[in-house]
């Protein structure tokens, strides 16, 4: 992913995401889960578990991993990959904090993330 192709969006104040907590940003590409991991870093991944599309933003965060609330698959917040022995991957979105504001980088026109939650919402 090349930096110059990204569109940066201001999504909220730095302190709006507590440590080991998460918030959701609704985007044209689907829901993005924004976490603050155990190290204090802000991370963003698609809010849909590669297993059954569970909302990762509702999972329990420990260290740099989140476990999906539906069936417990663990996903790395750093590279979006499922923790061994599980398999699967979600998109990771770049994040930067500038002047106390979190910016989320999205690739314009990228595909929407698949996932149970977004699928249902589209159906309505």
């Amino acid at each position: 992913m090349r930096e110059e192709t990204l569109e940066w969006h201001q999504i909220g104040a730095d302190d709006a995401v507590p440590r080991l907590g998460a918030r959701v940003v609704e985007t044209a590409q689907g829901r993005v889960a924004v976490f603050r991991d155990g190290t204090g870093a802000v991370r963003a991944i698609d809010d849909a578990c590669p297993h059954r599309g569970g909302p990762l933003s509702e999972g329990i965060v420990a260290g740099t991993e989140v476990s999906c609330p539906l069936h417990g698959m663990c996903i790395s917040l750093i590279d979006g990959r499922a923790i061994e022995p599980d398999e699967g991957e979600v998109r990771v979105h770049p994040v930067r904090v500038v002047g106390g504001v979190i910016h989320l980088g999205l690739v314009p026109g990228a595909r929407r993330a698949a996932g149970a939650c977004s699928a249902v919402r589209e159906a309505r």
Partner: peptide
Amino acid sequence: AHEFAPLARLADEPWA
């Protein structure tokens, strides 16, 4: 309250 509302809804997209 933060539990129940998205942090942001980005403009120019269908959710909003």
